[in-house]
Every structure is written in structure tokens, then in C-alpha cells.
Computed example of a mutant assay.
Amino acid sequence: MEIMDRRELADFLRSRRERITPADVGLPAGPRRRTPGLRREEVAQLAFISTEYYTRLEQARAPRPSREVLAGLARALRLSDAERDHLHHLAGAPPGPPAGPSIEVRQSILDLLHRLPQAAAIVMSATYEVIAWNDLAAALLEDFSALLRHERNLVRRVFLPPHPLERRLYGLPDADAFARTAAHHLRAAAARYPDDPEVVGLVAELLSGSEEFAQLWASHDVHTEPTLRKTINHPLVGPITVNCDVLDITDRDQRVVIYTADPGSPSEEALRLLSVIGTQRMDVPG
């Protein structure tokens, strides 16, 4: 353990708190707000700690925070990876690997999704949770904004589908191949995040609810060949064949999946039609 620098920690927490607006974390600004950024009690609430303890941290009077407290503060204050590491060093607790998969998407990646108007694109976490998407992806696959967070997980979607078998995974004829790939990637993610309750819970849910997943899990395989081309049977416009390219975001353990159609193909025309249909029938944030 390193030496805790209480004064630097207090100043760092205060500076991070003051840069965040209530709107950034979904809180109302309210009248008579005298302090820039968040109030101390708001940070404490978001970090699941007492206001008294957080106040003592900012006054350089608190004992060393636990790793659980530091993780809560990092989430509440929306710290970057570098800031999270700095927080741990100031608290005298050298940072370890992230407890769980990151679901925070960099703004530059969100901007990239919007700059791909002729391509459907999503961002997935290490556990196949869809954490960002553009309008065309919502029209091609599903209106993710209308789903609860746990329903946006594609591993859960393929093994515990809420739809008829023919729509197991958006009508993909190779849904079985996707299932194998997803199970193998999830095993690797579970090894990277062995203490994350969401990862542990997801694996337990799949093991108890899907014999197919249980068999794949028992194989202990962690590598599969990528699928570079898919055909999606869309309920409105029919089959759409797309190229599937994956860009790894290694520092966040995330992947950007981009679906494009061959130029001049019927599938390209179908994507163009979907871009119009999608914007007319759903309101999907990027």
C-alpha cells in the first residue's frame, strides 16, 4: 500500500465534482444552486456512500477509502481511466484492473457512429451488451432505446430469445455460429472480470436457462473465427446481406461493429430504405 495524500485527494475530488453538471448525471439543477457542478450530497448519493464520509474526504479528514468506495467515486465523478488510476494513487491504494466491463463510450466513438449515415453501427461491451448505436442500426436490428438495459445484451438475446425461433437473432441464418462465438468471448471476459457481479450473474443465468450455452461453456473454448458477412432477415424489407467489420477499442475492452452493404447491391438499397423508415417510425438517440 502507498501513503495516502489526504490534501491532494481532497483537492482532486473537489475539482472533479465541480466540473460535472447535474444534467450530466441525470439530476435536476434546481433553484438556488450556489456551487459549481454537483453538491457533495449528490456525489455521495451517486457513489453509495454517506454524505458525512464524502465531506470528510474533501476536508482531508477521512480515513483511507476502500477500493469499493474508490470505485463508487470513480463512477459518480465520471473519471477517465487515467483519472481513476490517479485517484487510487492519491488514496494510497494502487489501482488494479477494472472490476467490471466498461459501459462508458468515448465521445469520439459516439461521434463516429453519427458520421456513418450509410452504415449501421453499434458499440458492444466485453459481455456483448449494446451500449451505443446509430439510427440505422436501430432500424436494421432493433430499437434499443425501447429496451431495458439487460434486454440489450446479445448473448442473452441469442440464448434466451424473447422472440420466435425464426427471429432468434434478427433472423440471422448463422445465429448458431454467433452463439458459439459469443459464448467463447464471454468465457474470456469472465476470466478478465472474475469478481464483477453482473458478469457472474449473466453466466449463471445462461447456464441455468440454456442447455446449448451450458454445453458451449463446458468446452472451455475461447477463440473462434470472425464472421465477415451476415444476412439479416428484416421483417419489413426482407433479407439484407451486409459486411461485418469489428474495430476493437482496447483501452475500454469494447468493440465497434459496423454493418455495410456492397455498393450498388439490392442490400444497399434496402439499407437506404430502412434509413427512411427508421427515422419515421422511431425516435432513437445515438
Score class of each variant (00 low, 15 high):
3 I>N: 04
3 I>C: 01
4 M>A: 07
5 D>N: 14
6 R>M: 04
6 R>D: 03
8 E>S: 13
9 L>D: 06
11 D>M: 15
13 L>A: 08
15 S>G: 08
17 R>T: 00
20 I>K: 10
20 I>F: 10
21 T>R: 15
28 P>Q: 09
39 R>K: 08
40 R>D: 05
47 A>C: 06
50 S>R: 14
54 Y>K: 09
55 T>M: 00
56 R>A: 12
57 L>M: 15
58 E>K: 11
64 R>L: 07
65 P>C: 01
67 R>T: 12
69 V>H: 04
74 A>M: 07
76 A>G: 12
76 A>C: 11
77 L>N: 09
78 R>H: 08
82 A>I: 10
85 D>F: 10
96 G>S: 05
98 P>M: 09
102 S>F: 02
105 V>K: 11
106 R>F: 03
114 H>R: 10
120 A>H: 05
121 A>F: 10
122 I>S: 04
122 I>E: 07
123 V>M: 03
125 S>T: 05
128 Y>Q: 15
130 V>G: 03
130 V>Y: 00
133 W>T: 04
134 N>R: 08
135 D>L: 11
135 D>R: 13
137 A>D: 05
137 A>P: 01
138 A>W: 00
144 F>Q: 07
144 F>A: 12
147 L>Q: 11
148 L>Q: 14
151 E>F: 01
151 E>H: 14
156 R>T: 13
158 V>A: 08
162 P>L: 09
166 E>T: 06
167 R>P: 00
169 L>P: 03
170 Y>A: 03
171 G>Q: 12
176 D>C: 07
177 A>C: 02
179 A>Y: 13
181 T>Y: 10
182 A>Q: 13
186 L>R: 01
190 A>C: 08
194 P>R: 03
195 D>K: 06
195 D>H: 11
196 D>E: 07
197 P>D: 01
198 E>D: 14
203 V>W: 11
206 L>K: 09
210 S>G: 13
213 F>G: 09
215 Q>G: 00
216 L>H: 10
227 T>M: 13
228 L>T: 15
233 N>I: 00
233 N>K: 01
234 H>L: 05
236 L>F: 04
237 V>R: 04
239 P>Y: 00
244 C>L: 11
245 D>N: 13
246 V>H: 03
246 V>P: 02
247 L>V: 15
248 D>G: 02
251 D>E: 15
254 Q>R: 12
257 V>W: 06
264 G>Q: 04
264 G>N: 06
268 E>C: 06
272 R>G: 09
273 L>H: 00
275 S>W: 01
284 V>T: 14
285 P>D: 13
285 P>F: 09
286 G>K: 08
